[in-house]
Design a binder for these strands. Structure first.
Lengths: 377, 377
DNA sequence: ACACTAAGTTCAGAAAATGAACAAATCAAC
DNA sequence: GTTGATTTGTTCATTTTCTGAACTTAGTGT
């Protein structure tokens, strides 16, 4: 078990990257003397290691960084069938990859994971020894202990203590998380938002997910529902949504909605690129659909900016590119719906992600618990 | 200067009210032994005092609470002319009240405050000795040090280090804050949100303000703009707003907008009650205006709920009552625009406030800095 | 070779928290 | 009433954690 200071240090390093002992001391507000001991202990534990030596005036400083191979994590995405299962190190690098059949029965899932583990680890004995946790990403609401799924429409669950079930069956520490929140954590830990304290991730796929980091911590809200941007009303009195209300962002801007609208217009569409291409050749219906979707998402993001003033909006997407009409309209809509004083002040970063997002996000939940721990302070 | 543990304790008491030493120990995760010393020190300092004795099985426990007269604060609102100036204790009770001329010149403001202080304190010598800070509420953006006004349209300011100017002139520790954020802090410290960790305050007046508390702390966002709900686009392509864009919530639901719309329809309207009364007698224009305003504010609040999932929405207002059409429509709009699963799950509390809100809010900023301190942890 | 600079270590001592024993104040039961 | 159970709060020796100051180390600049 790590001490509170050790945890704080790991957090700082995971945010700010390799640091010298002196820098660490000043960032944590500790003396060099205290830092010296803390660093020694963590090096002895194999969690930190000395990397680069930086020469300046005076004695050169030695940067310390997390040892990427000090711990390994398994991440599983329950969003696809078969469910991908990956093995990752502390840098988020994927070391092994596999799949397992998806099920709605928690016990069957736990069984499949337990069976899959040895195969995932077989080429990496050192990872097996240092396996520090399993993370599971799913579509639904997860409680703040990252142990229970409060509700999942997709899996038809209600108060399922999935983490405990997997932990008991597999013998490995397990945490679960909502899909969008898991992606946000992986961006904070491994990705392009490491040093940013306040940011929101919007994940655009068949559905639209969103999660907020506030003051360096994932914010899940009072019922675990923070970030449910997909069901913000964007078009008053719009088309009915599967959630029961009307005009949700999800009915206009999700890839599922875009595909459905395209099909309704007689356009073949399996990805964003498809319809972007048609729009670029002047197809009126395609242009209309992209316009509607882009401005809806842009408005939602503008509202998010107005509401929370994040330091970064990170849009992750799997399909096609954002260089076309959709992206242009989206950016325009953000600019015109944000206080002019703020226009352009909130960076919006587009990130194309591969099919491993969810599984990597899941692994990052385990990594986060290893590094920072469940206890807040 | 208080230690970190002492600060943590004050925070817990300010949230949870009177507690026994044993309860405090378990809440802070400390031993009874450690708690004993911390409590003794704070009692010696005059910050805590023993209140009620609670009898149960075993030795009765003695509840400790903040001593309301251990420190006094001055709060000034720069939102009105003349600017109200109040003296408050640690419970938010207003002890003395006064006014000073408003100015746009920071030095003149500092001068007026310094001149006003002795008169405010003259009947309360003990408050003068224990005066622990001045808080100033203003309309505009304030940086995270609560010292500089980054920008204020109303006062025509840009990067004004108001807190330093007042502190230097008056010799009293001074902090400034945005109006809506100050109200949120006063509700957290003195009001009806003491024990709630995640909540948002929506203040309805001539303008619409909003501020979020997240994980027990005021969240100001990356540029101090968190909560700028007033300029969320609610009616796409709606009427132009003074901010430069169109269809902002402020153009439809602020009291200023309601009054203007009423006048445009030839209705006399100086307060919400006026127009509510006309609506209740069947005046179509009045009904239309209230409907539009109520559903706009309801939609904005619904979006806020979807986005941040707060544990409470507190709507503060000065004028009239919320029992009429406006309140009904507002509630309806919230319900229909929130995920059905969440409908009714987020309590919305309406609170009628008097003319002292802003000044009391300002004082609470000083009180907050006294209790919890500027340093986060 | 010489000062100069800054990083990191060592070590005695201060500060803060713990655990265990104990004193204090009540209730409950006989 | 007296006794025992029960829980609060204190005391004190000990442990843990951090600090300050002196010191060592490994470079740069002249």
């Amino acid at each position: 078990m790590l001490t509170s200071s050790q945890r704080q240090l790991l957090r700082v390093i995971s945010e700010a990257g390799p640091l010298s002992r002196t820098e660490m001391a000043s960032m944590l507000g500790l003396s060099k003397a205290a830092m010296s001991g803390i660093a020694r202990d963590l090096i002895d534990l194999g969690v930190l290691h000395e990397t680069e030596t930086v020469y300046g005036q005076g004695r050169p400083s030695i940067l310390l960084d997390l040892h990427p191979e000090c711990a390994f994590f398994v991440g599983i995405s329950l969003l696809e069938d078969p469910a991908p299962m990956i093995l990752s190190d502390l840098n988020g690098r994927i070391i092994a990859r596999q799949a397992m059949p998806l099920s709605r029965d928690p016990k069957v899932i736990a069984e499949a994971i337990t069976e899959g583990l040895p195969r995932l680890l077989e080429a990496h004995p050192e990872a097996g020894e240092k396996l520090s946790g399993i993370g599971v990403a799913l579509s639904g609401f997860v409680d703040e202990t990252q142990a229970n799924c409060v509700q999942s429409t997709l899996l038809n669950w209600q108060d399922v203590p999935l983490a405990r079930i997997i932990r008991e069956r597999s013998g490995v520490e397990t945490f679960i998380e909502n899909d969008a929140k898991a992606v946000a954590v992986s961006e904070k830990l491994f990705g392009s938002a490491r040093e940013i304290q306040n940011f929101s991730v919007v994940s655009l796929g068949d559905g639209i997910g969103c999660a907020h980091f506030i003051e360096g911590k994932l914010y899940r809200g009072n019922h675990g529902g923070a970030g449910e941007i997909a069901h913000c009303t964007i078009e008053s009195g719009g088309v009915p949504c599967r959630c029961g209300k009307r005009g949700c962002l999800d009915t206009v801007a999700s890839m599922k909605a875009i595909k459905e609208m395209s099909r309704a217009e007689g356009l073949e569409c399996t990805s964003l690129s498809d319809i972007e291409e048609k729009a670029s050749t002047g197809n009126a219906a395609a242009i209309r659909i992209l316009h509607r979707a882009g401005s809806a998402l842009g408005l939602a993001i503008a509202n998010l900016i107005q509401m929370n003033d994040p330091g970064l909006i990170l849009i992750t997407h799997v399909e096609g590119s954002f260089d076309g009409l959709f992206g242009t309209v989206l950016n325009q809509a953000v600019e015109t719906n944000v206080l002019p004083r703020y226009a352009g002040q909130t960076p919006i970063r587009i990130k194309r992600v591969d099919g491993d997002v969810w599984a990597r996000g899941a692994a990052s939940i385990a990594a986060h618990n290893f590094l920072i721990g469940p206890n807040s302070n």
